[in-house]
């Protein structure tokens, strides 16, 4: 793990789509974030324990653990309440969004997203 310069915030992008991860990475790096990527839930939880991100951009529907399962597991782990978790999913039904928030997500991005939306959500989370 590379030591971060003071003040640089880390965002972990969790998505099984390489394209989405790449798009998110570009947006986040433009916003001044250091970016880590995970392709599934297990990898995400492992990464979280080592890189201690300020924010996690979390897909819902992934092979293996779902985003919701990752969130539940994360919030039970030591230090797991610290990162801001922003769901990032094509799921756009209000009932599902409410479910994610009830489980402890800080905010929610409906795909497709753009740089303005990501910046807006990170601002609301107090990270920009």
């Amino acid at each position: 793990m590379v030591k971060q310069p003071a003040g640089v915030k880390i965002c972990l992008v969790v998505d099984d789509s390489r394209v989405i991860r790449k798009v998110a990475r570009r947006i986040l790096e433009d916003l001044g974030f250091e970016v880590a990527e995970a392709a599934d839930g297990a990898e995400a939880l492992a990464w979280r324990r080592t890189c201690n991100p300020d924010a996690i951009l979390l897909d819902w529907n992934m092979p293996g653990m779902s985003g919701l399962e990752v969130l539940r597991q994360l919030r039970r782990e030591p230090g797991g309440l610290e990162p801001k978790v922003i769901f990032c999913s094509a799921e756009n039904e209000l009932a599902r969004i409410r479910e994610a928030l009830d489980e402890g997500a800080d905010d929610y991005i409906m795909k497709p997203f753009d740089g303005d939306i990501v910046a807006s959500k990170l601002t609301l989370a107090g990270l920009l």
């Binding site: 209000l94 969004i97 994610a100 928030l101 997500a105 905010d107 991005i109 303005d116 959500k121 609301l124």
Partner: peptide, 20 residues
């Protein structure tokens, strides 16, 4: 639109004050 409700508005307020 879906884009508009994600500019400046938190998901908490979206589920509280909007309907599909």
């Amino acid at each position: 639109s879906q884009f508009e409700v994600q500019r400046g508005l938190s998901a908490h307020r979206l589920v509280r004050h909007f309907e599909t």
